[in-house]
Design a binder for these strands. Structure first.
Lengths: 188, 188
DNA sequence: ACCGTCATGTAATCGGTTACATGATTCT
DNA sequence: AGAATCATGTAACCGATTACATGACGGT
């Protein structure tokens, strides 16, 4: 059995459903935004289509609300829970990549100081957020999320340290104010 | 102008072509394998299709070998060089993500010790390779690749340190010691 | 001459992203 | 009541991965 291919997105959905079943895709979206999105983003549309897929292959059970919005509620089936556990218990993982566009730009000849000045605030902010979450005043967390958070802290520290070393060694802080929308190449 | 959408893959191709034009897609594949693949992999088929795309929008010039294999040779056009420079000179970059499947598995409840044992050798090996490349006996490198390599070293160090801390230790409660593996104490 | 691996591509599929659309709530 | 935002989804497109396929070259 187990002839069904599961993408990483599939496992995310199964894992999120496990934590709050029965859940609508929108519930998953909110839950993802609180947690996994910190190191793995996915657009909300994926959650809808992925829930459909997983229901089709029998890993999720779909049910409609009876009144009001008649939203779709998904819960793990036994097969789904088994698939999730199988994946979770197998320590093998396809090797990761860094895949950071700023490093690519650096690699291909971009200006190190300018890129560093652009990158640093975001990593610094992430680091602070993670440290606040991990602090004693933050919410209590399960082992998995807590350890993943430690990894995030370690990586953000490395980023902050690296980009800091590339900063143009001007006086105090010209680092401030580097916020601008990034995506729009739209013609006006 | 600049109405053409360029994916990251596009920029990789433009950047690689710049370094060894005129180049066949296969040349690009080899060059990528020596360099950029360390933090951004792409299958060789992408190089073929991306060269086609870029030729269609006028950023690459295509020419056929006259004899023998009649392979296709690509070179940057003026427009292509300009597009590459424009991208390179713009320090803004869409924010990156970690997107490491092993962290996801950890997050969703996988066994920390087992995952760590699986992850550690690869990161350790990468770290050694990078350090060898960066050493004095390694090949001389341009600034971009050299700095990207420094980033790779910093990140791999963080990974090695993190996963090491999760390794099933001889002592019982090693999981307690996870916080702050880098050596820096948390601010109050 | 044969076999294996490198070199060089084409084509189909599929997951992910983008664009669009509309019904509920909340705020003023 | 109207505006704004949240909630909930559908559909098209496109880039990326996978599968397949074949020609050249080197070794035995």
């Amino acid at each position: 059995m187990s002839t069904v291919r599961l993408s990483t997105t599939s496992l995310i959905v199964l894992g999120l459903v496990e934590q709050c079943e029965p859940a609508t895709p929108y519930d998953l979206k909110r839950l993802a935004q609180l947690s996994v999105v910190n190191f793995w983003t996915l657009p909300h549309t994926q959650l809808y289509t992925e829930c459909d897929r997983l229901a089709e292959v029998g890993y999720l059970h779909e049910r409609r609300e009876e009144h009001g919005r008649r939203r779709r509620l998904f819960a793990l089936t036994d097969a789904g829970r088994e698939a999730l556990d199988r994946w979770r218990q197998d320590p093998r993982v396809e090797p990761g990549e860094v895949r950071d566009a700023s490093l690519l730009k650096l690699f291909l000849g971009g200006d190190p100081g300018a890129i560093a000045a652009e990158q640093l605030p975001g990593h610094h902010r992430s680091l602070e957020v993670y440290q606040a979450l991990a602090g004693d005043d933050g919410p209590p967390m399960a082992d998995g999320p807590r350890l993943a958070l430690q990894a995030g802290i370690a990586l953000e520290r490395a980023y902050v340290s690296f980009w800091s070393s590339l900063l143009p060694a001007a006086g105090a802080s010209a680092v401030r104010e580097v916020a601008a929308p990034i995506g729009d190449a739209r013609p006006a």
